[in-house]
Amino acid sequence: MSFQPLVKVEGLKKYFPVSKGLFRKTHDYIHAVDDVSFSIQPRESLGLVGESGCGKTTTGKLLVRLLTPTAGRIFFRMEEEEAREEGVRLEDGYVDVATLKGRALKNFRRHVQMIFQDPYESMNPRLTIYDIVAEPMAVQGIGSVMEREQRVAEMLQHVGLTPPESFMFRYPHELSGGQRQRVAIARALIINPTFVIADEPTSMLDVSVRTGVMQLMQDLADRFGISYLYITHDLAVARYMCDKIAVMYLGKIVEMAETEELLHHPLHPYTKALLSAVPIPDPTYKREVIEIRGSVSTPINPPSYCRFYNRCPVAKEGLCNVQEHPPLEDKGGGHYVACHLV
């Protein structure tokens, strides 16, 4: 493993104002992503796991700059030569994605792509598969029409839609869910990105086609040297797709570790509760369940102490509700936890 990460995220924040109507000043903010830091090595896949509303999708959208961060920096490693060609400034071999604009941002998008959750809504119903897959090439002005056709055919072959000629000029609604998600993968990979954000790419697929798509994403990552940020609510899927998993709760990463380490030795009380609630496809297995109170709330102007305090089964009054939200610290062997009591 290289010591130079491909992506470094430092203190990333995104606050959404809560609108109270026209002309009134907003004082309330949803802290969707609140001081999140992590890094991803080349060819490594990081899973971002959490319940709905924890900020995992917002984090993904910040990384591809579909959203502009409120604060924080997103560093992306780039070769000096590439950077000069694309007209971006490097700091120690990294470009700060959070500040990119215009031409430089458009060029940056050649390196980073995204796969979306819904295979039915993520494709324009009036475009053919060829147009959908070739779109990144077309907007980036890469290749002639003939070259694009050739490349699309190649890509369709890679994602298992063979023969490509029989798929290229069909419309999305003529394909099944699994086939469409393969098209989405082809679109994301057609301009050879090094970093792909996958936002629940398999959660809407049936079990019998899901494994195939998961397998395909792994094969292509190995083949083309891609790093994934894999966003999911399903820990079992994350186990198979990710080298490392970060668990998010109300805008914060509460725990991050190598996948098997996290699943077998969770340290944070929230991670423990989350893992214990995951159903196991084995009727002989009787697990111990850690009950936690309440449900996920919306982090509007949250208190500065630990976000999990109100629901935590082991919280200590006078410590957890007095001190600041605990920092994410290495508790040994790259197992990061944000909890006062670990």
Partner: peptide, 24 residues
């Protein structure tokens, strides 16, 4: 059998998931 082998779990050994070819 295929369905059970295609389903991931967080419990136990990380077994290889089976892919069922084709579409519904």
């Amino acid at each position: 059998e295929a369905l059970l082998q295609a389903f991931p779990s967080i419990h136990g050994e990380k077994k290889t998931l089976l892919t069922i070819p084709g579409e519904l």
